[in-house]
Design a protein around this nucleic acid. Sequence first.
DNA 1: ATCTTTGTAGAGTGATTAGTCAATCTTTAT
DNA 2: ATAAAGATTGACTAATCACTCTACAAAGAT
Lengths: 186, 186
Amino acid sequence: MDKQKEILNAALKLFVEFGFHGTPTSKIAKEAGVANGTLFHYYSTKEELILALYKDIKARLTSCMYTNADKDKSLKEIFKTLYINTLEWASDHKEEFYFIQQFHTSPFFSLISSEEIEKQTKPHLDMIQQGIKNKILKPLPLELLFNLINSHISGINQYLSSANLTGQKQKKVINESFDLLWDMIT
Amino acid sequence: MDKQKEILNAALKLFVEFGFHGTPTSKIAKEAGVANGTLFHYYSTKEELILALYKDIKARLTSCMYTNADKDKSLKEIFKTLYINTLEWASDHKEEFYFIQQFHTSPFFSLISSEEIEKQTKPHLDMIQQGIKNKILKPLPLELLFNLINSHISGINQYLSSANLTGQKQKKVINESFDLLWDMIT
DNA sequence: ATCTTTGTAGAGTGATTAGTCAATCTTTAT
DNA sequence: ATAAAGATTGACTAATCACTCTACAAAGAT
């Protein structure tokens, strides 16, 4: 077992349950089954651990999000693939997805450089811009469309989390809610 | 000046900036211009203060939200009034609105009883149900529509927060985004 | 085999924190 | 005017926390 990963796993679990400052590093170490000092061997401060955890989770989400989003597909198909991938990842990684939201409304979010944020959002903004240029998407402000899509996904995820549906029904909701979104922005 | 209100104001400001556990009660007292003990005179624990602040802000939002939402108006008009009121309140009370989101993705949210939550959401769910019954809204699951509307508002608010528009343009965005939402759910 | 680097441990530390308490001040009721 | 109740203070405390430090073990390189 990789102790560093154990630390990240433990931190995720505890942060989601007790919050960032509500989780002492000592408890993280204990939950991970490592000594106190080991945690600080990998992450020299608690803040560094939090940021590393965020980046790790974000990277895993991004990676999963783009699977099967082949460039030869139509824009709508690509959009839909990203949409479905995101919601299914969220459903399979509830703690991780919750952590991202928790992080975004925490003081730690301001520690992420604007370049880092841009690097993450740029591909999506580019896609949207392309959609507008090709007259597929409505000629609304880029950021507005972006926020609309993101919050729509977040809303559907909240619904799926609260209503415990079977895999079949969940897929149906994801598919139909995509159409709602697509109709709204095209 | 009411010291209790000063404490809530200071707590709001600091919680938004530094997070719940990142803000010591001593700093709240100092920011509020009161002694340490005074804070604990009004709120016997920090947790109690956090919950009181949430309930206070939520009550103010709810109160503002329903102004001019007269019952003789059509459902669409009522929906639109609530929509606009919420977004304008959010724009005029950025810290408060941010605090609500921060609270919802914090461990403290689980301390709000389900009755309290239901009391807050019931009126909205009832309105949606009425809309479905009257065949105005699409026959989608109640909770789905509810989450869709909420997250739509949250998305528009995020856009308005980042794009610093003039009052005029902001009103235009609010109005037009309502139409997008309304078309989606009807 | 020996040296170097890296990983791991856990007791220890100084600073910080939520909450207490006894003393004073202010307001209200009679 | 006086008593009772409530408000305010700030020093104090016991607990907790992030982080350090020294010692030791494991692994890799030469």
